[in-house]
């Protein structure tokens, strides 16, 4: 297996996650697509860590996971607050700032 295999896989998963963010309007599914993109980045970091004989990539994966966990907690709390106020989690129907 070459490094390129892993990088190609991670690029494809990143693209799928990006499509999810662009196409879906359900805020929860958009958040899930964000997690997918972070996972693709993690594959990249692990692959480089192996092929460059270094350990920093794997350490960074743990930091990315910590940030993802924080993001999920705060983001989902925001979604719950939004649902309490607007009765919707559709991103197109959230237009507080529209004049």
């Amino acid at each position: 297996m070459t490094l390129q295999h892993y990088l190609a896989l991670s690029a494809i998963i990143f693209g799928i996650g990006m499509t999810g963010v662009l196409v879906r309007r359900n805020l929860i599914v958009m958040f899930m697509s964000l997690e997918l993109m972070l996972n693709a980045v993690n594959i990249n970091l692990a692959a480089f860590s192996k092929y460059l004989h270094a350990m920093n990539g794997q350490v960074f994966i743990v930091f990315v996971m910590a940030v993802a966990a924080a993001e999920a907690a705060v983001g989902l709390a925001l979604i719950i607050t939004l649902f309490k106020n607007k009765e919707t989690i559709n991103a197109d129907e959230v237009n507080f700032f529209k004049g």
Binding site: V23, R24, R25, N26, L27, I28, V29, F31, M32, E35, N39, N42, M65, A68, A69, A72, A73, L76, I79, I80, F83, T88, I89, N90, A91, D92
Partner: peptide, 28 residues
């Protein structure tokens, strides 16, 4: 990955989905 993502973050998502029970499937 299995413990944090599959164990914690995913359960958080499922909790929120089942708590809100949103009606719109939300494609653009």
């Amino acid at each position: 990955q299995v413990l944090v993502y599959a164990g914690a973050i995913l359960v958080l998502y499922l909790f929120v989905v089942m708590l809100l029970n949103p009606k719109s499937h939300g494609f653009i």
